[in-house]
Design a protein around this nucleic acid. Structure first.
Lengths: 204, 204
DNA sequence: CTGCAAAGTTGCAGTGCGTGTAAAGTTGCA
DNA sequence: TGCAACTTTACACGCACTGCAACTTTGCAG
């Protein structure tokens, strides 16, 4: 059950710990204030005051006020699940492995489960956040395509773009369904339902 | 070959004509300047000067500088194609009709073909624009779902959300493929290729 | 043609996001 | 203990975008 990525030291230095603490403090402060007053009524100044940090520092951590609400960090695709996928696993069956990867995106969020839940809650009320989230995905599409390309090689029947787009679609659709269910249930089950319905529509 | 929506008079008043002319002038001015200097180097002030219009007026036409570059107008889903789809046509076969609708989105853009091509060109160089475009789609998702819901009724096997999402996926994927082909070829053909590959991936 | 109501444009002042820069403070390490 | 690398912070600035109130233009009825 331990979470020990290979190339990171088990115990972090003071500097790194402080950085993470600050990041989380900023996200929490944002969630607190936005949950109470709404996204547009909360200024970055207010968030920084709440978190006890200068405005300039805020923007060292997040590109955007919205990013803080969503807890966005630069996406790390070098996760164990990502590597397994690129290497041709876990089953060797493309569609199943895409599903496994999508599940890993949803169940091991870099932000932590409760914070993710808070972010989802806010996004449901503030459409702008959903848009920003999509934009963030878009920003990392290149990385994602590269990952898929490693898996496919350049000789397969499918284009990395198309496969990557399908992966994003599955992830997003599952996310929505999960959210609609109030965050209950396992990601696997929702994803299965999505795939089933997608197949049904296509072969209708 | 004539384009005569039902509830609009054949000849427009001076007011309406001026409005459209201004909108197009603003889009063209934006395209000209952004194409030359890049999106971030062009201020709204500059665009307005180029178009001979006050800044305040600019924001009466567009929510955002980026919207002007993309030529975004509030989406009218009450198109002939939309109505046909909602009514169960044109073939009565869901998947085929989704494709027909997607094609109509791509071939009858509210903005006009050349302007759309210009916008695509800019979007390829400025990732922000793609993101904004997605956000704009997201804003109109509700309308789109409503349209799909009219078609499906509430008793069908599929959820409007899922069908709507598939529609967006098809449209977007086709758009990308079209763009990658340099804007050449018919939308139909690219869409068919997308559907074929999607089926192939899913049943792989 | 005239005059009135509706719609549209404009300048202005203001809010707030986001960035460059340079100085001051912290942490890592020899 | 002291130096090098990294962070935070204050300050100043540019620009996107908005509300408002005056002004101009268009549509239309008499």
């Amino acid at each position: 059950m331990q979470n020990t990525p290979v190339d990171q030291p088990e115990v972090l230095g003071l500097r790194e710990r402080k950085k993470r603490a600050r990041r989380e403090a900023l996200i929490d402060a944002t969630h607190r204030l936005v949950g109470e007053h709404g996204l547009d009524a909360v200024t970055v100044d207010a968030i920084c005051e709440e978190a006890g940090v200068s405005v300039r520092t805020f923007f060292n951590y997040f590109e955007t006020k919205d990013d803080a609400a969503l807890g966005h960090a630069p996406w790390q695709l070098e996760t164990p699940a990502g590597e397994v996928f690129a290497a041709g696993g876990p089953t060797g069956h493309l569609m199943l492995d895409l599903q496994a990867l999508a599940v890993s995106f949803l169940t091991d969020p870099p932000i932590g489960r409760e914070r993710l839940a808070r972010a989802m809650e806010l996004a449901a009320k503030e459409p702008r956040l959903v848009a920003r989230h999509l934009a963030w995905f878009e920003q990392h599409k290149g990385q994602l395509f590269a990952l898929v390309e490693r898996r496919l090689g350049q000789d397969g029947p499918h284009t990395p773009e198309m496969v990557g787009s399908v992966l994003l679609f599955l992830t997003h659709a599952t996310f929505l369904r999960w959210d609609a269910a109030g965050g209950h249930g396992a990601a696997d089950d929702h994803l299965s339902a999505v795939v089933t319905e997608l197949r049904s529509i296509l072969s209708d």
